[in-house]
């Protein structure tokens, strides 16, 4: 038990030092990188590590006779959580979301400190002590609070009332419901039944298995399968069209969606909302190929009403590309990210 706890304490100290070092630029602020596409789970794991660390730390301090009162443990953990959310998470999350997490965190802390009567008593003891002011120190504290709290609250409300120009928050629907069918270059495509005409095997037959076997490998780098090079001259079918789709992508799309399809292209920094990140498991991996076909063809302006705000500068690509080219680009996007398009069955 003790060994386990000391290990925990070690994790806690190491984690805090690392985090502190990164905040104050003692070590490079990207020492522990947020891994693209896995950020939410990584953050959860990190917080879990810290919880383990704190448990170990508090146990060790207890064992060494330097126990931290429950009161300060609770407050400390909550402050840690808020600091973590504000400074660790990137891109930053808006205050309103942090406030929600903060409230949930506060409730959790309260549940923890009030798990039983004795704990609750221990928790509120310091407050009571200050209220009762039996010792000189507490008396001093009481007067200090008496003055400080009104000043702080007054100050906060003054701050809150000062006219401010913070960016208004605009939420948007990530995957608006697609229409049943879409008309591109004079031909109507039913989204439920249409297929990518280039997802074909060398014989020219629609073949999902063949194409799925030739996409890039999942894992670091998302590299092509060793024997499935789209640049091989001998390719027929799927891989040949992947290359053609890539050519179109790198002439039209990468400016925003990026060389690695992660939404960080050459011009992406100028736009808000930022271009879609196709490597994120929440975008094209969740959708059917026909959905992408519709979005590419109709662009931001073609979004339905619930897809507001229409701040997207994605153009209706049907104005620049032929139907074949659009299908090939869609094919390339799935190849390059290594995702299988969703199917209706």
């Amino acid at each position: 038990m003790k060994a386990l706890m000391s290990l925990g304490a070690l994790i806690g100290v190491a984690g805090l030092l690392l985090l502190g070092g990164m905040f104050f630029d003692v070590v490079p602020s990207n020492t522990v990188r947020l891994v693209e596409g896995y950020m939410p789970i990584q953050l959860l794991l990190e917080v879990a590590c810290f919880v383990i660390g704190f448990t170990g730390l508090s146990y060790m301090m207890n064992a060494m006779g330097m126990a931290l009162p429950r009161f300060w443990q609770g407050i400390g953990f909550w402050i840690f959580l808020m600091v973590y959310l504000k400074y660790r998470v990137y891109p930053p999350i808006p205050f309103s979301v942090r406030a929600m997490y903060g409230t949930v965190g506060l409730v959790t802390v309260f549940m923890w400190v009030s798990a039983n009567e004795e704990d609750w008593k221990k928790f509120k003891q310091p407050i009571m002590n200050v209220l009762d002011a039996q010792t000189g120190m507490n008396r001093l504290l009481r007067y200090a609070y008496l003055v400080l709290i009104p000043i702080l609250i007054g100050g906060f409300s003054f701050n809150a009332m000062m006219p401010k120009s913070e960016e208004p928050i605009e939420l948007r629907t990530v995957h608006p419901a697609p229409p049943a069918s879409t008309k591109v270059h004079g031909k109507t495509y039913t989204l439920q039944t249409s297929q990518n005409p280039y997802r074909v095997n060398p014989e020219g037959k629609y073949d999902q298995e063949f194409s799925n076997a030739n996409i890039v490998e999942q894992g670091m780098g998302r590299l092509m399968k060793p024997n499935a090079n789209p640049w091989d001259e001998k390719n027929q079918g799927y891989l040949k069209y992947v290359r053609e789709g890539g050519e179109i992508f790198f002439q039209n799309c990468h400016f925003c969606h990026g060389d690695n399809l992660n939404g960080r292209g050459l011009h992406a920094f100028a736009f808000n909302p930022i271009p879609a990140n196709f490597t994120d498991p929440g975008t094209i991996a969740q959708l059917q190929e026909t959905f992408i076909f519709w979005r590419v063809s109709k662009g931001g302006i073609g979004l339905p009403n619930e897809g507001f705000p229409w701040a997207s500068v994605m153009p209706p690509w049907e104005q620049h590309l032929t139907v074949d080219e659009i299908w090939k680009v869609v094919l390339f996007e799935y190849w390059h990210t290594g995702y299988y398009p969703r199917t209706w069955d």
């Binding site: 092509m224 789209p230 992508f249 690695n260």
Partner: peptide, 8 residues
């Protein structure tokens, strides 16, 4: 790596 990422 080259023919996946750079060749384009």
């Amino acid at each position: 790596v080259y023919f996946t990422k750079c060749v384009w």
